[in-house]
Design a protein around this nucleic acid. Structure first.
Lengths: 243, 243
DNA sequence: CGGCGATTTGATAAATGTCAAATCACGTGG
DNA sequence: CCACGTGATTTGACATTTATCAAATCGCCG
């Protein structure tokens, strides 16, 4: 049986058998969405959380003038709609970029997990911090870097996430986003995204063929993106013992 | 005895006596900083977390070109350097905007708390979500709103945070930031911040006198800021029982 | 072959940044 | 009490980045 949460958390620490069983139990149910399907709509009442089992999704908000800000791209093993742990209604819309399957789980399952498996609960606090730092990296990008940097940063971020799911991916990958979506994630217009992609190409940093991207000069791309490699600096040695 | 964490978390749920005692124990130690003092420097090794007891602080990152992005303003009861739960070195610098006192605590204290008080551990997960949503609100602001909106949003955010600490504060308050700091928080230059403040004044939304701000038309200000009121929509009924 | 969304390109406009200088505010030393 | 020094604010002129609008082209699916 595939175990999505255990796979994700298992990249951070070695899980005990008991912990794996508890995590698997959370993912029993399954709900599928076709491409473009809406899992959660902004302002709708939130009753469940989800684990993404297959496919990729994104979350976004719509501003009063109709413009869209994409907040996050979601991949296998990601927890979705965790804001439901706090807010009655969803602060964001979550839709499927590809055909997807999610496992819905009740908020009470998180409560039960906290009681039965303190280490996993503490690990959820830690995972929250990883995501918080990822958000602050993006915040600094939007606030203080050029359009070119932001587009480069998005390419690197997506490639890195795809690679953790599939280690055979190297410099070449399929982004799976339209230029409008890239713009909504980076705070730019689709037209300007197009120009920046071409500039990255002219700079010899990437090559393009349809939706396929190839990183030609990865260090150079990371430099123009002002990219911070965070993955290597992890330390979870403080966690309590497993049950 | 003042209890900073308990005060903060007590706004979210009713704490049990045992929980209060456990939280108080975390805050025994104290370290003071003068105005401008550095609590944590970006890239430095992180060994402790902190609870802010008195004063206000801010966290920021410096980009390769020397520009600064302020990530967060910190007030009494805020947890600081939580990234230390995950990363060996700090992703951000934290400095005191006023004279401050913090309580340092070990990461192992969080582990102990998770084991002894599952509800508090789950609550920390929830608090992480509150902060995540606050960050996504700012992300959408930086990506998709005008300079005027961003400045207005900052004024509202700071005023609201000051008011939860001191309910006597109404439309009038002391921001305690230079225009350069406002710019570094909103992704603008100090010069442009100045112009936007004047425009907000001309629009009849605010009045200024030195560092003192007064909200003249609060609904109008909230509208131009595209402000989302999140505080009222909380629901933590799913938490496990207290110990 | 037709249609439609996505991409590409050019011309122009709007928002914001940069640079420079004047003014203001306030604490310090004389 | 006053003069000065220093950082913050304010203002104007001009530059740059990015958005907007419009049109052409591309790619793919039915």
């Amino acid at each position: 049986m595939a175990t999505y949460l255990a796979e994700r958390l298992g990249e951070l620490i070695d899980l005990s058998v008991n912990e794996r069983v508890a995590l698997e139990r959370l993912e029993q149910r399954e709900r599928t969405l076709r491409r473009g399907g809406v899992l959660v709509r902004e302002h709708d009442r939130l009753t469940e959380l989800y684990v993404l089992k297959r496919g990729t999704m994104m979350s976004y908000v719509i501003l009063p003038d109709g413009s869209r800000q994409i907040l996050r791209f979601l991949f296998r093993g990601d927890l979705i709609a965790m804001a439901g742990l706090v807010y009655r209604s969803s602060p964001e819309t979550v839709i499927a970029l590809t055909a997807c399957a999610v496992a819905p789980l009740d908020r009470s399952a998180v409560a039960d997990l906290a009681v039965a498996h303190p280490r996993l609960s503490a690990l959820l606090v830690a995972v929250g911090q990883i995501e918080r730092v990822a958000l602050t990296d993006r915040l600094a990008g939007l606030g203080r870097t050029s359009a070119k940097s932001r587009v480069a940063a998005l390419l690197i971020e997506i490639r890195d996430r795809l690679r953790t799911l599939d280690p055979t991916i190297d410099g070449a990958f399929t982004l799976g986003l339209t230029q409008e979506q890239i713009g909504d994630a980076t705070g730019l217009t689709a037209v300007h995204v197009n120009r920046m992609l071409r500039k990255l190409e002219e700079d010899g940093l990437i090559a393009r063929d349809g939706g396929q991207f190839t990183m030609i000069d990865e260090p150079g791309l990371a430099r123009t993106a002002h990219h911070n490699e965070r993955r290597s600096g992890l330390d979870l040695g403080w966690l309590p013992d497993a049950r």
